[in-house]
Structure formats: C-alpha cells, structure tokens
Design a protein around this nucleic acid. Structure first.
Length: 280
DNA sequence: GTAGTCAATATGGAAT
DNA sequence: ATTCCATATTGACTAC
C-alpha cells in the first residue's frame, strides 16, 4: 500500500502469507528459483476457479516439430516394441513397490522415444549411462489426459491398467500424474495471481477515489463551519428528520438512504428546508 | 545461447 | 514400515 492512510476508508486488500504459512508459488523460471521463496500468495481467496479451468489450459500438448506420416509409422512400430519390453518387465515386477523408484536401466528408459531419438544407439561402453529424454507418444498422452480428466489421481489398479495399455511402467504412469497435477497447480496459481493483482489495483483505485471524497467533504464541512451561516443551520448537532406528510420523526443517520425525500429541519423550528417529492 | 517444456529423480510429510 | 502425494530440482530436448 502506498499510503499509510489507505485503510481509513476501510477498503483494504491484505497481501500476506497463506494461512498455512506456506508459499504456494511455483518457480516461474529457473533463474527465479532463489527468489521464489519469499513470494507469498495474497491471503485473499476469491474462489474463481472451477474444475473447468483445471485441465483445458494445459491440455494441448506441444506439437512435435513435424508430425508427419513417418512419425506415426515409427510410433506404431515403437509401440509394438514397447509392448514386448513392457510385458517382459511386467512379468518380472510385482506391483507398485518402493523399489520401483530406483533408477531404471538405460534400456527401459527408451520405451517411448520419439522418432529419431529411438534410432540413437545407446553408448554401451559408457560406464555412466546418461539419462535420455523420454517423450510419451501422442497416443499415450491422449489416453493419459483422458484418464486424468475423469480422475486426477490413480489407484494401483488404474495405474497397472494404464501401464499395460500404454506399454509403460506403472511408475511412469504415476510420475506422469504427479507432474500433471503439478502443472495444473502451477497454471492455476499463475492465473490466480494475475486475478488478485487486477483486483488489488481496482481496490487501490477505489480507495484513492474514496479518500479524495472524504477529504473534499471534510474541507466542505470546515468551510461551512467557518462561514457565517444562519444560526438555525449552523447549530444543527443532530438533525431532526421528519416525515413531510405525517410529521413523525426518524432516527438521524438511520435506515433510509441519503436520497431520502425527508427534509432536514431544526428541532426548534421544525421548519422544512425543502419540499419533499413523495411522502412515505 | 537461452528460455521453456517435460519426464525423471529426490525428498519430506501425512496417512495407514 | 510402507505407501502416496506434493514439491523442488535435474537433465534432455526444442524453439526462438
């Protein structure tokens, strides 16, 4: 907030840590990693995001450079090979165990290489096999996305099932879902942050405007008191507000709005200052 | 060269 | 103790 008086009109937007005290910002860019920790989510929750925003923003998978016919041909061949490899693996593995997380052999890392990559020969002579970039095929991603839309987490059965269908390891399915949830959260946070920023700006403007109004009114009030006004107007402390038709009084500062047709008159004289347009 | 993306890995906390 | 999940980070890759 720019001015310490900014809250005098009770239009304040608090920006601070979340109730959990945990920063929910994801890193935006690698260069921002070190700075991200002190960024805190504004404490105002607007609840603008429904399920619909969850998936669509990130649902489009970046297109591979040239998705030509060759690619699909290679992919189908690749899928066939993957099935073989996967079936061998599945036969030797027993479900989702902790041991799954251990680094896999280089051969299995190649399960879903895109065209070109899969033709690269693994350097077997190298004692430290470098991690190869694995890309899930369009078909695999599509199926995973479809599954994700119906449930954002997978139980062991679903995981096994998907792994079988996609010729992946269950661990890969699990990781995909984890990363997918992280991506959604990151996107959501980004959108949320933008919305809050805009809301904050709007409230700041409104706050400033109201402060100006308050100032104007104060000046006006001071000017009136300073001026030599007729005693019956100057001495009004608690205006006596009367219904023009029946003459009954109403509480000053009461329930009717400032645009009320009631007139304000002095308690002593009871004289109307203006004629009402409509009685109540 | 570099920023961005994404699969994979590491780690810690919660739940069982 | 084990499993699951969130989160941070790494490393390969792509697009510009």
């Amino acid at each position: 907030m720019e001015s310490p008086d900014a809250c005098s009109t009770r239009l304040c937007l608090g920006l601070g840590p979340t109730s959990t005290g945990q920063s929910t910002f994801q890193r935006v860019a690698p260069s921002d990693r070190d700075d991200a920790d002190h960024l805190l989510l504004p404490s105002l929750s607007l609840g603008l995001f429904g399920e619909a925003t969850n998936y669509q923003s990130t649902a489009s998978i970046p297109d591979r450079a040239t998705t030509d016919k060759q690619l699909s041909l290679v992919e189908s061949t690749n899928m066939h090979l993957q099935r073989e490899v996967s079936s061998i693996f599945n036969n030797s593995s027993s479900g989702t165990k902790r041991s799954e997380r251990e680094p896999e052999s280089g051969a299995l890392e190649k399960t879903a290489m895109v065209s070109g990559e899969e033709e690269e020969e693994e350097d077997c002579s190298s004692s430290t096999p470098r991690r190869k970039k694995l890309r899930l095929s369009k078909e695999q991603v599509s199926i995973l996305e479809g599954s994700f839309k119906s449930h954002t987490t997978v139980n062991p059965n679903q995981k096994e099932d998907l792994a079988r269908r996609l010729c992946l390891r269950p661990r890969q399915v699990e990781v995909w879902f984890q990363n997918r949830r992280a991506r959604i959260k990151s996107k959501q946070t980004e959108v949320e942050c933008e919305t809050l920023k805009r809301r904050c700006e709007t409230l700041m403007e409104e706050n400033m405007r109201l402060q100006e109004q308050v100032l104007e009114l104060k000046l006006l009030s001071t000017a009136r008191q300073a001026a030599m006004m007729p005693p019956f107007l100057v001495q009004i402390q608690t205006p006596f507000i009367a219904c023009p038709s029946c003459g009954k009084s109403a509480e000053s500062g009461g329930s009717f709005p400032s645009t009320t047709p009631f007139s304000v008159s002095t308690p002593k004289s009871g004289r109307r200052l203006s004629e009402p347009s409509t009685p109540h």
